[in-house]
Write a protein that binds this DNA or RNA. Structure first.
Lengths: 255, 255
DNA sequence: TTTTCCTACTGACATTTATCATTAGCCATT
DNA sequence: AATGGCTAATGATAAATGTCAGTAGGAAAA
């Protein structure tokens, strides 16, 4: 964990990441245009705050191989992580190996702030899904950014609150939706997270196990469900790669 | 909604509620003693902050009958709610009636801040479980309390982060625990929330449907599971009332 | 090229859980 | 005490999903 490289760090980048998250969730709530105004206003005001700018001088960067752990359940957080490039998942582990994926991240996202906020050990594990370049932002740096300014605090709280709403929605769906719906939802979530803007014929290389752990179901059941989707021409499967053929139908399944 | 009564409001009460929540979650993490220090320190420092004291002058109080709605999914929040007396649940509704309980509250708790933080419509519904006395704290009052002081912001964020951890834990359990375990967990949760300190022979009057909606399962299945617990002498059932006979076994079920 | 290993896939089956239908019990009102 | 209405309980059954065991295929290593 000591092969970090020191590089200049600009707070604005972190703020942008918060904003980006807020923007995305607002987008889903179809309030995008309204919030873009507030966003730009905020970014420029933040830029004006000189005390924010000089907060932190360095950041550490590290490259993680596919399947490499970034942090592990039970260890203590020293800061937060920011994805420069690649893909990351966070998951919780159930008795004897079953996993449930709690978060998916890509370039521009940050993760690992929950344990930091709570001042406890990590209660989940972060792992690279692809080879990834992750930068580390020390605790003090992060906290001073978050708490020095009430507006930033507010933004950050809004973001966490959004996360909380999402989890509650997820609980409802996990409780009462069929596996079929949940697997479709997992594909939709993966598409929303990893499809690049303007990209058509989106496909991804993700293990059946990860999809199962996102849907909270057995791997075999997931595979069968995916085969069903393939028969229905909702997706295409070539080797380990899944192509989304009909996003709309997947997102609006009857049952 | 206009039969509110005006009554003096002391911010300290809300701060105490935040602290109480933090204390409870910390307790579970067995870090109680450590945090009591910080708590007292914080309360006294907050008391010293004169600008905090004069923030809000009034609050509204209303009595809700059992099963009466306090706020409803889809409506816009105007503030947060603080429980003076009674019990409250919040729940989300699935297609055609199924409910999932997302929160349980009692005297000293506050609820309904999520939609407020997100600046969106309520995404859940709050309903009184018993006849309850609820006071309403207007948005502005709440926000100025939360954002005026960085320490308060931090406390509040820590609290929300704790909520988020809890939801993730709940997701893991909902995904992979048997109904039996989840029903036991629901009883444990109810006990933790509603058992008074020092109370022995704790019993509660809660509908089987509410327990089912807490466990995310069908009411009939819950009833059968409860009958099983009764046979195993883990609980006792007298009419609609459930008495917890063996909390430890319920909390540490094999499967 | 062969071998190895990991993942995807398939089948058979057991188990869990939901659903539908019905009965029993309790409380409140008359 | 009788009636009505709601909740709890039970039974029978179907449906959904998990589990176990085994096969296939493709990529990496030898």
């Amino acid at each position: 964990a000591d092969d970090y490289v020191t590089k200049p760090f600009d707070d604005i980048e972190l703020l942008n990441a918060i904003e980006s998250r807020l923007r995305k969730s607002d987008l889903m709530k179809k309030e995008f245009s309204k919030n873009v105004e507030g966003l730009n206003e905020f970014i420029s005001s933040a830029k004006g705050m000189e005390d924010l700018k000089k907060l932190s001088e360095t950041r550490e960067i590290k490259t993680y191989k596919k399947k490499e752990n970034i942090y592990q359940e039970g260890s203590y957080p020293r800061g937060i992580y920011f994805v420069n490039a690649g893909k990351v998942k966070t998951f919780k582990t159930h008795e004897l190996g079953k996993e449930f994926i709690t978060g998916l991240y890509k370039e521009g996202d940050f993760f690992g702030y929950l344990a930091l906020m709570e001042e406890t050990k990590y209660i989940d594990t972060a792992e690279a899904l692809d080879e990834s370049e992750i930068c580390f932002i020390p605790k003090e740096e992060f906290f001073s950014l978050i708490f020095r300014n009430a507006e930033v605090s507010k933004r950050f709280m809004k973001m966490i609150s959004g996360d909380l709403s999402d989890k509650e929605e997820q609980l409802l769906k996990l409780a009462y939706n069929s596996v079929r719906k949940r697997v479709a939802e997992a594909l939709v979530t993966l598409t929303n997270r990893y499809k690049k803007d303007g990209e058509t014929n989106f496909s991804m290389n993700i293990s059946r196990e990860d999809i199962a752990n996102l849907a909270g179901t057995a791997t075999e059941t997931t595979i069968r469900t995916l085969s069903g989707f393939k028969d229905e021409k909702l997706i295409d499967i070539k080797g380990g790669t899944i192509a989304i053929l009909d996003y709309e139908k997947l997102a609006n399944l009857r049952n």
